[in-house]
Design a binder for these strands. Structure first.
Length: 566
RNA sequence: CGGAACGUGGCGCAGUCUGGUAGCGCACUUGACUGGGGGUCAAGUGGUCGGAGGUUCAAAUCCUCUCGUUCCGACCA
């Protein structure tokens, strides 16, 4: 490739619409351009990076015994009605009618289509296990597309579906995919964690998300500094604290005029927030419940939801609190409280703390669980926080953001039952096929890789994902010696099968250096004055800025050695 | 869907409050100089100011509607 001929429109300034790093750099480096909200064109280098990810995914899927197919993007509504998802899926499913008034939709995922395919073509236990996958453009009409390739409406996804005779075989297929995913993300050069995901709606099944660790992630993860533990904060368990060994002092009511907030009460009484317990009121279905957590903690609403077994919990407003308890907000406490009370495990282990007195302008001190109020319902209800102990190894937890790049799911027979996908077993009886599904956000990986690998000058692609491995800068396009050497190197590297871009533009050196940094090519060769003077070529590593000067004869061997470390 | 902001040449922006011949930087074209971290000078190209309607002698500017984009939230996973 010659820079003078390729469409690689780099920008000095960042388009105003781009907020996150990967979006900014993808635009600036000339990798993508937006057509409309959440829909992008891939320019040559953007496509090249995408292909690199696809290639890794394909190799590993094939190695795992999966077979590649390609399914239609346009799908008939009737198929979706069989699973009830045409109604359930919501407005993310882009629906339309064709010229014959047939209802159709653009595929946001392919469980229905693949299950249809399999029920028509797989009839015997001999046909399984079977794992089929595709790499394809998906369309989800997101309410709010954002962050460029991170959450587009149209995006490239690898989706795989496994079919097995029973649950045990399906678990094996799941395990194979779990390991395959580990390999894929490792080969992509990404720092990632596999985290257990919520299996909520489909009982009995299980599921893992693969998260790339990066600041711009949309999910918050609790990860351990000392071991491999990682969990979505919604699921991360807070370790049971050991009870405080302290003698219970005498309960006392004191006046706290106008002091309602945790910090004002603390200030007024000269205590810290961890010596106080706050009482929060939630609406959970038809019920109103109170939750006790330490003054400096937050309630994790997902945990509360699961504890109560309801679909949703909403924080009560001042009026709802008063209606339910007869106490104005700010003075609530567990002593003689009239509504159902849930106690965070941490609070249950505390002694002699401060709570509201259930009376305007009064708080209580030296409150003790068990003695002053009943510990009817104790559970893990608070958010895990930085420096909390790790539930696995006891190390310390830190919080980080994660980008979901993969999600694997044991589906069971959810779809096969609805769509009557059965096979004939040894005994001649029809049995329902057991399924799994496995997704990877291929285009999202490109964005995630950039989120994780960049500096102030631009992208730093891992070698495995870079559109090409080497860029040669000809710093003397009007100098015969320099140009001849740059051209010679270019031809030689191509012959040796190295992916190389030759910057043969009549630009000043500064521009060429800036562009080379911006587009993120791992290795840079510079042919310039130093070649004329000392017959040396400069080789520079984008990732760490390391520079060496070598004679032309060494170039190919040096590059091959560098690239073999992939 | 709720809240907020923005829309002026390819990109980034000023001008809008206070109506009066559309501007700046970058990019692009031509020429000269220059040539190892986005260079200098000169001369140029390119915009019916998102669209429609209205007010006015006069609208980028005021009013109404509309389309688009972005941010926060909700939703979804």
């Amino acid at each position: 490739m010659r820079y003078s001929q390729i469409l690689l429109p780099t920008l000095k300034e960042t388009p105003a619409e781009a907020e996150v790093v990967s979006h900014r750099l993808l635009l600036r480096a000339g990798y993508i351009r937006k057509l409309t909200a959440g829909v992008y064109s891939y320019l040559p280098f953007g496509l090249a990076a995408l292909r690199k990810v696809e290639q890794i995914v394909r190799e590993e899927m094939n190695r795992a015994g999966a077979q590649e197919i390609l399914m239609p993007m346009v799908q008939p509504a009737d198929l979706w009605r069989e699973t009830g998802r045409y109604e359930k899926y919501g407005p993310e499913l882009l629906r339309f009618k064709d010229r014959h008034d047939r209802e159709s939709c653009l595929g946001p995922t392919h469980e229905e289509v693949i299950t249809d395919l399999v029920r028509k073509n797989v009839h015997s236990y001999r046909d399984m296990p079977l794992n089929l996958y595709q790499v394809q453009t998906k369309f989800r009409d997101e309410i709010r597309p954002r962050f460029g390739l991170m959450r587009g409406r149209e995006f490239v996804m690898k989706d795989a579906y496994s079919f097995d005779v029973d649950d045990e075989a399906a678990s094996k297929s799941y395990q194979v995919m779990y390991e395959t995913y580990q390999r894929i993300f490792e080969r992509c050069g990404l720092e990632f964690r596999a985290v257990e995901a919520d299996s909520g709606t489909i009982g009995g099944s299980f599921s893992h998300e693969f998260m790339v660790l990066a600041e711009t992630g949309e999910d918050t993860l609790a990860i351990c500094n000392d071991c491999e533990y990682a969990a979505n904060v919604e699921k991360a368990e807070v370790v049971l604290p050991s009870p405080v060994d302290e003698e219970a002092a005498e309960l006392e009511k004191i006046e706290t005029p106008g002091k309602r907030k945790v910090n004002t009460v603390c200030e007024f009484m000269g205590i810290k927030a961890d010596e106080l317990v706050k009482t929060l009121v939630y609406l959970a279905g038809d019920e109103t419940v109170a939750v006790l957590v330490r003054g400096d903690r937050e309630v994790e609403e997902v945990k509360l939801k699961n504890q109560l077994g309801v679909a949703e919990v909403i924080m009560a407003d001042d009026k709802q609190v008063y209606d339910a308890t007869g106490v104005p907000t700010g003075y609530l406490g567990p002593v003689d409280l009239s509504i159902r009370l849930l106690v965070d495990r941490e609070v249950a282990a505390m002694r002699n703390f401060v709570v509201g007195a259930n009376e305007k302008n009064f708080h209580m001190i030296n409150v003790n669980p068990g003695r002053d109020f009943e510990l009817a319902e104790v559970a893990d209800l608070r958010c895990i926080e930085t420096d909390d102990p790790c539930p696995e190894c006891g190390g310390t937890i830190r919080m980080t953001e994660g980008i979901e790049v993969g999600h694997i799911f044991k589906l069971g027979t959810v779809y096969s039952q609805d769509m009557n996908a059965v096979y004939q077993d040894h005994d001649g009886k029809d049995k329902t096929i057991v399924m799994g599904c496995y997704g990877i956000g291929v285009s999202r990986i490109v964005a995630a890789a950039i989120e994780q690998n960049h500096d102030e000058n631009g992208i730093i692609f891992p070698k495995q994902l870079a559109p090409c491995q080497v860029i040669i800068l000809n710093l003397g396009t009007n100098d015969k010696t320099i140009t001849a050497e740059a051209e010679r190197l270019y031809a030689e590297l191509q012959n040796r099968g190295i992916e190389v871009l030759l910057d043969d533009r009549d630009e000043r050196p500064g521009s060429k250096f800036k562009d080379a940094d911006l587009i993120g090519i791992p290795l840079r060769l510079t042919v310039g004055k130093r070649f004329v003077k000392d017959s040396v070529i400069e080789i520079r590593h984008r990732a760490d800025g390391r520079v060496e000067e070598i004679v032309p004869e060494q170039v190919v061997d040096t590059l091959l050695a560098e690239l073999s470390s992939i």
